[in-house]
Nucleic acid binder design. Structure first.
Length: 835
RNA sequence: GCGGACGUGGCGAAACGGUAGACGCGAUAGGUUUAGGACCUAUUGGUCGUAAGGCCAUGGGGGUUCAAGUCCCUUCGUCCGCACCA
């Protein structure tokens, strides 16, 4: 002990925390140096959006990741822990419009604010690798990646029916429509045909689909949800020839029960309908108007309005018929909005005897309803006209039980599909629920699409040497429903790289989810100029060892990020296919009232207030302790006191530390005079805390420390060895107080060595061994007594059992009974089965 | 409708198939302090009992097992994801 006087001051977090934060900063305590000799470790938290306020949720995620990172560092890994900002996107524009500030200025000042807030956390984030996505050093490589994708045919321009947010006036990716509403502003989304850029994520659907044995450790829930979102379905496209025309309509089905098909329905946006409206196909005047009116109405309807039509089917007859190959019958073609243009082929064969929706439709419009009770191969059988659909009866069951007795449903459908293909009536296809990723936005604050539109040459990619195409600062960025950059006339005008004629830039910007799909590569070297990231380092640090984040990114961000990494792999930029070896999702801290925190409810807990009152160490510790990392539970204001008291007790424990002349280092091999029990308690704690933090069980890690502190307090005195160990294992959770106590008691006069430079105490497996164990004595599975057995005798079953039989509490149960069985589980339990 | 997760004290929660409720909050009683949302000691799932000890308890009901909070089936409930997906 350095301070022999043992007169300690009060624990005042507000005094010590700032001091150490500045010291660490000055000493570059957390500076990451790439060291090829060490084992690298790359933990990551999803990069935050610079809203200008670091809320409790941020604290929860970052503080836990920080604890994990610190422990890994103490365990000898070379830990690369950094952060950046997802700085493009709509909120900046909206805030800018509201306050009259430029989105760039708003964003950059928010980043400055948030970095100040981050500093109060006392994390080991090394900001020298900070990446801000709205800066040209970053988005230049967005453009580069986009060009590579274009080159490989993965980026394409299309005019497709898309989700359109009427408020934000931009298209939305499928992943960002929630219950028919815009994920950002909650406005009802409408379907609109918009010409825009897409990324062909569907080309990677098969590879993104998680197979049975995933090579990386991701939560099962995420894998299932992603698979469901990708949603591959093997089936058949069946061709229906339109009677009296050259037209052919294809439908997709997984269950080709064509005997039951009595009509065909197409989506309002179907090309066949378009041809009618364009008068390329003739229909009577009245029919034309009816179709036109119906299609116009459908266009105007929001997703929600269409969903409200679930029970009340609407539609209009086109006047055309198609031939049902199997029956030879001609069946009518109707237009209806219950068929979706963006799934399958946009046309469905109506089998009202087998499908509730088709049934409702047929019922409403008086179409015939047939139920198949015959084989699918054209074998004999009959058709019946049922009065009603048997509700709840699935297609699969019906087919299997009624007319394909003994054949597995899947097998039967396989046979049927092959039959169709042989006959030339269709082709085998796989459809996906996932759609190509709509990637361009009709807004200002984003990465400009690096493309040029030339009257002569069409769409021409910007040559790599011309990158970045910088986003101009002075632009009228108010939303107009068209890309605002188009109004930046000077910026728009350029020359065609191919013909050198006058050409225009592409005024659209990239979805910010493009930015966040690969940022963790850029962290490696944010200023790297010869590519998106340095190839030599990427193989050493990537893939991520652990990726912390929220469940809301299950089908959006993390799926996109996987796609990008697979693309990088195909380009030969990386030698792995998954970007994160492990994914850990955090839970949600609710307000003290048990509701989600929101300003309108007034139940928001501000971390800055908590830090002011208790200090960052207590906030970190409580966040770790309050619940399992992935749980959702309310904030308990009293809980802060619990952990604050713990820190205070650790502070005051200085007084209890015994002075010993030798002051033996805890890393020395020679154990000092700690008794076996004391040693065991210490080593048990050392091991469990590390194990728990590695497996992100922060709550039990803290409780283990608490338990040990209780134990240490109950003793006569605490040795330096114990106290040092306590400070070390507590240091990842409470970096400030432990640094203060370490320097106060063990600091050197010669120079500053932070406690955070030390390694995790080595735990000694032999110290864990107990001299004796408690063995539970059960009778018929009920605990009746316990027995203390020396370790040396643990294998002596006969002896232990005979001893157990002598116990008073046990022996009384034997009277008048017979022992049928004696079970002994080594070192654990004895169970007498009596009768 | 499809898919998934979860139901344990007053609360947050612990429990390799092996003494259910660790740890913390709160509560009760007592003590202590000039004061303090302070500190200390004891108790704290229910129930019977002076006690020793017993009985009942992990949403409900079955099952597997010497042994089940944990595994299986079923049912109820809560939460989440997807959904007119053909």
């Amino acid at each position: 002990m350095k301070n022999t006087a043992k007169k300690i001051n009060r624990y005042l977090p507000e005094v010590i925390e700032k001091k150490w934060q500045q010291k660490w900063d000055k000493e570059q305590t957390y500076k990451f140096e790439f060291d090829s000799k060490k084992e690298q470790y790359y933990p990551l938290v999803e990069l935050p959006y610079p809203s200008g306020d670091l809320h409790l949720g941020h604290w929860f995620t970052f503080a836990m990741a920080d604890i994990h990172a610190r422990v890994m560092r103490m365990l000898g890994r070379n830990v690369f822990f950094t952060n950046g900002f997802d700085a493009f996107g709509l909120p900046a524009e909206n805030a800018a419009i509201k306050r009259g500030i430029h989105p760039r200025d708003w964003t950059l000042s928010n980043i400055a604010t948030m970095k100040k807030q981050f500093a109060t956390m006392g994390s080991m984030i090394d900001w020298s690798h900070e990446t801000v996505t709205c800066l040209p050093e970053y988005y230049r490589w967005n453009q580069w990646i986009f060009l590579k994708m274009y080159e490989k045919g993965l980026a394409y321009r299309g005019r497709l029916l898309s989700n359109w947010c009427p408020k934000d006036m931009t298209v939305l990716a499928n992943e960002h429509v929630e219950n028919g509403k815009c994920w950002r502003c909650g406005t009802e989304v409408i379907q609109k045909e918009v010409e825009q850029w897409f990324l062909k994520i569907t080309a990677y659907a098969d590879r993104l689909y998680w197979k049975d044995k995933p090579e990386v450790d991701w939560p099962n829930s995420v894998r299932i949800a992603q698979n469901q979102w990708i949603g591959p379905k093997r089936g058949i496209e069946i061709y229906f020839d339109v009677v009296d025309s050259q037209e052919r309509i294809a439908v997709f089905t997984t269950t080709p029960i064509n005997f039951g098909a009595t009509f065909l329905v197409v989506a309002p946006e179907h090309p066949f309908v378009k041809k009618i409206l364009d008068r390329k196909l003739q229909v009577p005047k009245g029919t034309y108007q009816a179709i036109r009116d119906y299609v116009h109405q459908a266009e105007k309807n929001t997703q929600r309005e269409r969903l409200e039509n679930v029970k009340n089917k609407t539609g209009v007859f086109t006047g055309y018929y198609v031939k049902n190959h199997l029956t030879g019958e001609n069946i009518p073609v109707w237009v209806t909005d219950y068929v979706l243009m963006n799934y399958g082929t946009g046309a469905v064969q109506g089998c009202p005897g087998h499908d509730e929706r088709d049934f409702a439709f047929a019922k409403k419009f008086g179409l015939s309803i047939k139920r198949v009770v015959t084989g699918p191969h054209g074998e004999t059988g009959s058709l019946v006209n049922p009065e009603q659909l048997i509700v709840g009866e699935s297609r699969g069951k019906m087919v299997n039980s009624e007319f394909l007795d003994g054949i597995e449903f899947v097998e039967a459908m396989e046979k049927t599909m092959n039959y169709f293909v042989e006959k030339g009536w269709g082709r085998r296809v796989t459809t996906y629920h996932i759609r190509d990723w709509s990637i361009s936005r009709q807004r200002y604050w984003g990465t400009p699409v690096p493309m040029i539109h030339c009257k002569q040459c069409g769409i021409v990619p910007v040559p790599e040497k011309d990158l970045p195409i910088e986003l101009p600062y002075d632009v009228d960025f108010s939303p107009k429903g068209k890309a605002p950059l188009a109004t930046a006339t000077e910026w728009m005008i350029t020359t065609c790289p191919r013909c050198e004629g006058e050409a225009k830039r592409d005024p659209e910007t990239l979805d910010t989810f493009f930015d966040s799909s690969w940022y963790f590569y850029r962290y490696l070297d944010p200023l790297f100029a010869d590519g998106p990231f340095p190839k030599e380092i990427v193989t050493k640090l990537m893939p991520l060892d652990i990726y912390f984040g929220g469940a809301e990114h299950t089908v959006g961000h993390t799926l996109y990020a996987r796609f990008f990494t697979m693309f990088f792999h195909d380009l030969g930029l990386v030698n792995f296919k998954e970007f994160a070896l492990r994914r850990v999702q955090h839970g949600v801290i609710l307000g003290p009232d048990g509701n989600r925190m929101s300003k309108s409810r007034g139940n928001v807990v501000n971390p800055d207030d908590m830090v002011r009152e208790f200090g960052a160490d207590s906030v970190r510790l409580y966040l770790a302790f309050m619940m399992p990392y992935d749980a959702t539970a309310p904030w308990n204001p009293r809980g802060m006191w619990g952990v604050f008291r713990l820190l205070k007790r650790v502070w005051e424990m200085q007084e209890k530390v015994k002075d010993d002349e030798n002051n033996p280092s805890i890393h020395s091999q020679t154990q000092n005079d700690l008794k076996r029990t004391e040693l065991r308690e210490m080593h048990k704690t050392i091991k469990k805390v590390a194990d728990d933090v590695i497996s992100t069980k922060f709550n039990t890690a803290v409780s283990t420390i608490m338990k040990w502190v209780n134990y240490l307090e109950s003793k006569e005195g605490v040795s330096n060895e114990e106290y040092k160990t306590l400070l070390l294992i507590l240091s990842p959770f409470a970096p400030h107080i432990t640094e203060e106590l370490w320097q106060l008691n063990y600091g050197s006069d010669k120079g500053f060595i932070s406690i955070h430079e030390y390694l995790w105490p080595r735990y000694d497996a032999s110290a864990l061994k107990e001299e004796q164990v408690t063995i539970v004595i059960q009778i018929n599975g009920k605990t009746r007594d316990t027995l203390l057995v020396p370790m040396a005798q643990i294998d002596d079953k006969a002896r232990i059992i005979s001893q157990a039989k002598l116990h008073e509490n046990v022996v009384k149960y034997f009277t008048g009974k017979q022992i049928k069985k004696e079970i002994y589980v080594r070192g654990k339990i004895i169970n007498f089965v009596i009768q």
